[in-house]
Design a protein around this nucleic acid. Structure first.
Length: 463
RNA sequence: GCGAGCGUAGCCAAGUGGUUAAGGCAGUGGAUUGUGGUUCCACCAUUCGCGGGUUCGAGUCCCGUCGUUCGCCCCA
């Protein structure tokens, strides 16, 4: 098979994110759809390097060491230890877009206009155990808005509107954006007497409710030294269900029962403002809800948090999530620079949705027309026709190699090219061209003068 | 990092100590010379991740090694 046995060319675990042509075309289509929604809301495109200093990557939160890939050069042997002083080990690959954004803002503070709204659809890297649909390198589509000093809660409200618009336009069925506010959670924990240093742990435990179920959450909480009564109270709290007004009513009632409810009240107020904004942005009621069990694992979230699931496919997990972070950017700059953002894990989303047959790959080739090679002597005609079509904006593949006609048509079919142009001696002498429409098998003879026009007409009818 | 499983062609695989290593998909060639997605025929692994061992004999058992998958953890 001509295969080299000494080189293992398989991709390492977690990096098998290569797509076939039709899949890549689908990805590009999605990227285009997503970015056009982002831009409709005035977000500006941005890209940051794959590499940042470790101190930047580790600046906030507990992402820690087990997910960051460090990067260092391979020192050539004959260079001895001359590279030893390089600080290669102090760099790593970015594991999300938010932390690099914070650093970016710190670097360009004086060149940017605030609130700064940007989108980014780069690859990120996580050194975690790979799973089906969960990779070590993957593409995330992020938007964030960062304000200087303060950031209006309407930016938080805008996020669900953007999410809704995106998932409506890529047509993947019903989805639900679940909204919560971390201050509601932390305020509640504080109010029922949980010590400050345990609140973070509690948030992380609560976050896994959906995955592991209430009894496991309770067990975990008790492992942290939380009494059974309190654990029950927590579970009851995060399970509160209902419409927005209903939940607000419950929360208001709860706030009077709590010992210390300042944070809790702030959280409720924020959540109310956000929901009000979402409503004003005309996001339809069945697309979002308040869900007090949404906490998000990342440490840097401080206020609003979001998670989006596909209705009927909840097991796919969150397809878009994010939240507000008050302190993250400020870790690099002295100022207060609160931000809010969301992220779509596109690689994972595509992989899962294609497995579930919700998304289907596009045709392998963007070409709309294939000019067949029936006679090598007519190659100049083929080239000329191809150029004419291209000038009219039509995507054309010209066959240079003479092959059995059936093979050529078969190839066009496999590539998903809808039209074949056949010009042999016969057609040529009559100044004609035969157009074959592959999905119907229909053929028609057109004079060369009208060809461009005719092809365009057929293509229009097809789409 | 810990626990479990798996490793047979480009892909999916049967095979559980005897040997010519099923089958399917894909691929290549053909079924009379200018027509595809259907059908039919032929071809397509001196070899079972790698190394060692047990045995008259190993893809099949044992040890090691590498790779990979799943679970815990974490998350997109």
């Amino acid at each position: 098979m001509g295969k080299r046995e000494d080189i293992n060319y398989k991709l390492p675990s977690g990096f098998d994110i290569e797509l076939l042509p039709g899949e890549r075309r689908l990805e590009l289509f999605l990227l285009e759809t997503i970015s056009s929604v982002f831009e409709r809301y005035g977000f500006t495109p941005l890209e940051t390097p794959a590499v940042e200093r470790l101190e930047v990557l580790q600046a906030k939160g507990n992402q820690g060491d087990n997910i960051i890939y460090s990067i260092e050069p391979i020192v050539p042997q004959d260079m001895g230890d001359s590279n030893e002083s390089s600080d290669g080990s102090s760099r790593g690959l970015k594991f999300d877009q938010t932390v690099p954004l914070a650093a970016y803002i710190a670097r360009h503070l004086n060149d940017l206009t605030f609130p700064f709204a940007r989108y980014q659809m780069d690859m990120v890297f996580r050194g975690e155990r790979a799973k089906k649909g969960r990779y070590r390198q993957f593409r995330q589509c992020d938007i964030d808005v960062v304000g200087r000093g303060s950031l209006d809660l309407l930016y938080d409200a805008q996020m669900p509107a953007i999410i809704a618009e995106i998932f409506e336009s890529i047509d993947i069925g019903k989805f639900l954006i679940r909204i919560n506010n971390r201050k509601v959670l932390t305020g509640f924990f504080k109010g029922i007497g949980i010590e400050k240093d345990k609140i973070k742990t509690c948030i992380n435990i609560v976050d896994i409710l959906e995955k592991v179920g209430a009894s496991k959450v309770k067990k975990e909480l008790e492992k942290e030294g939380i009494s059974e009564n309190i654990a029950d109270e927590i579970i009851e709290f995060i399970n509160i269900k209902g419409g927005s007004e209903e939940i607000f009513a419950t929360l208001d009632r709860k706030s009077t029962e709590l010992k210390e409810s300042e944070d809790f009240l702030v959280g409720i107020k924020e959540l109310k403002d956000v929901i009000k904004g979402v409503r004003s942005l005309k996001v339809s009621e069945d697309k979002y809800c308040i869900d007090l069990s949404i906490a998000r694992g990342l440490d840097y979230y401080t206020g609003t948090v979001y998670e989006t699931t596909l209705v009927g496919y909840e097991n796919l997990g969150s397809i878009c999530s994010g939240g507000r972070y008050e302190e993250l950017v400020g870790t690099f700059v002295g100022d207060k620079l609160p931000g809010v953002g969301i992220s779509i894990g596109l690689t994972r989303l595509m992989s899962k949705l294609m497995d579930a047959n919700i998304l289907k790959p596009m045709s392998a080739s963007p070409a709309q027309v294939m000019v067949l090679n029936l006679d090598r002597d007519l190659i100049d005609t083929y080239l000329e026709i191809s150029q004419n079509l291209r000038q009219a904006g039509i995507k054309v593949v010209t066959r240079f190699e003479k092959q059995k006609i059936g093979k050529q048509i078969q190839q066009a079919d496999r590539l998903g090219i809808p039209l074949c142009l056949l010009i042999g001696k016969e057609e040529y002498t009559q100044n004609q061209c035969r157009i074959k429409i592959l999905n119907t098998g229909e053929q028609l003879d057109i004079s060369l003068e009208n060809l461009v026009e005719e092809v365009r007409k057929i293509l229009n009818n097809q789409s």
